[in-house]
Nucleic acid binder design. Sequence first.
DNA 1: CGAGGGGTTGTTTTT
DNA 2: CAACCCCTCG
Length: 664
Amino acid sequence: MTHSYQLKVSEGSREASLIDYSGELNPAQLEAVMTLKGPILCIAGAGSGKTKTLVFRVARLVETGVSPESILLLTFTRKAALNMLDRAATLVGKATQRVAGGTYHSFANLVLRQYGAAIGISPAFSIIDGGDCADILNHIRIEVEPKTRETRFPQKRTLQEIFSKTLNRGLPLREVIMTEYEQFQEHLSDLEVIVKKFQEYKVKHHLMDYDDLLVNLQMLLQDSPEVRKTLSARFRFVMADEYQDTNMIQARITCLLGAEHRNIMVVGDDAQSIYSFRGANVQNILEFPSQFQPCKTIRLEQNFRSTRSILNATNQLMTHAKQGFAKKLFSIRPDGPKPAVVVCGDEAEQSMFVAQRILELREEGVGLSKIAVLFRSGFHSYHLELELKKRNIPFAKWGGFKFLEAAHIKDLLAHLRVLQNPSDVVAWQRILLLIEGIGTKSLPGIFAWIGASENPYNLSACKVSKRSRDGLDRLSKALQDASRHADGLPEPLVEIFSDYYLPLLKEHYLDDYPKRLRDLDQVSIISGRFETLHGFLSELALEPPRDSRDGQLTVDAEKEDRLVLSTVHSAKGLEWHSVFIIWALEGRFPSFSAFRKQSDLEEERRLMYVAMTRPQENLFISYPIYAYDPASGGILAKPSRFLDEIGSEFLERWDLIRPSDPTR
DNA sequence: CGAGGGGTTGTTTTT
DNA sequence: CAACCCCTCG
């Protein structure tokens, strides 16, 4: 490319900004940045500067006079969007902060609250998570199938999973049951009844689960041409990141948003598709060009992140993939150390190795925040966590157990939800059952009263048994105190309910209540950043903090020198100087549950690929040669098949087992 | 009718 | 090693 795209732009009174596009970007990136109109598919390999490309493209759009409000940036997490917009801001100024961005779910939330009325949606709906859905389903199940004894019936969590899958895959219930849950075939008709009642229940009580947000947004765009036109006029440029991980509904939403103006760019990497369990469909990215013809396809294949030694290994791994674009990433970075395969005697030795090596790296000048330990499932790091604590190595854990799913957090939030949406029966149930003397049998009576009452918060007027009177009166007082602030800031509300909840917390979680108490303070701190109650609740439901310390300002958290422990899923899109992948054993990574289907194994390989493409310099893959697996009762002793696929040529083996070790 | 205990289950990954 | 279910006791 000989001509230069360098250009000078002045934005209002701001001093002239100068972006040297052709100097900063390679030819493929440059093309993606400079093509502003029409449909584009950008296949961006791992570490190929995808984020940078998006950032520059936003900057470029703004520079050429596109108003930031008319750009929509759909990303996998809201954090990713904010991060990009921040970076774009340093190029062209703060104006980019006004770009709309977030996940499909958070976008759906905003649009539905604003325009949902067009298809009969109340703007005050509550967002419920998978656990809440499971609770609702449990009730319905009991109603529909009172004699669960004779035959095995799916549990509440499974029900929720099945129904979510049918929606996300866009398949009829029958088909999902027949292909993936054959054991429940005989219950098909019951399940159909349950799912119908479930939908009715949610509509009646103004509740929306994650799937409903997407389904309803799609419906709104499809059924209301006015809204679709309004939105197309408002968002004239649409960019969707991580497109390989969208499901059918999200893809349809994307198409509907782009249908009018066709200024749509989707970015992704089919080799990094790792969310098929929640309905993600690689076909979306593969078929995008045929849906938006003529479509420009741009490939970013130069890797800027990793050493050549690491890329050699990851390229080799992907030659075993059964489908997808064949591609080989190349790097102009020098060779580095080959990825090390570290063979340990047992789990304890693995943990010791990781901790030890991390300390050595720190000695060598690699800060803790530049190191990550990755694993397949949340619980794989338990032992390591103990070891790190013992050695005083600070770490943050992402993925796995979530702050929000802790019972005490859900308890506290349920009070706020009731305040926001008095017909949120799931939340009512949760807070009522906490009260001494109230059990499942007295609930229907209280619900009936709540439904009929003018002021459902005045529970003192509700007749209940003597034993529960005091507790209910206390709740009544807290709710009425809070409802007097109902339109105000969320923080004082959190305070009111924390005070109310404290005795209950002590009573229900006697053993570890001080620890849980600290979490409640976190909720209070987070709430201080929000101006409205449903802004706060929606954000929490859609963008849950990654760990209990995430409540602090992100900037601070990132500056703090802490090691990251993360599931591979949560590590997507990120990079570190040095990365450890632990538990590279058959049954762990790949996981047992992937053995049944070829397609699941393919996804496990892509997952390993994502993990291995995170480091810049050092990659350590470890496994214990011997591990008892309490889940299966068996012994795990076979190294991950993915190590075989890569082959010893690209790896370096470190044997930690002492020759005299009897377990050898 | 509610609470608390004991046995049994089955354990990916996330918005 | 939970969370969940079922059962018994108060």
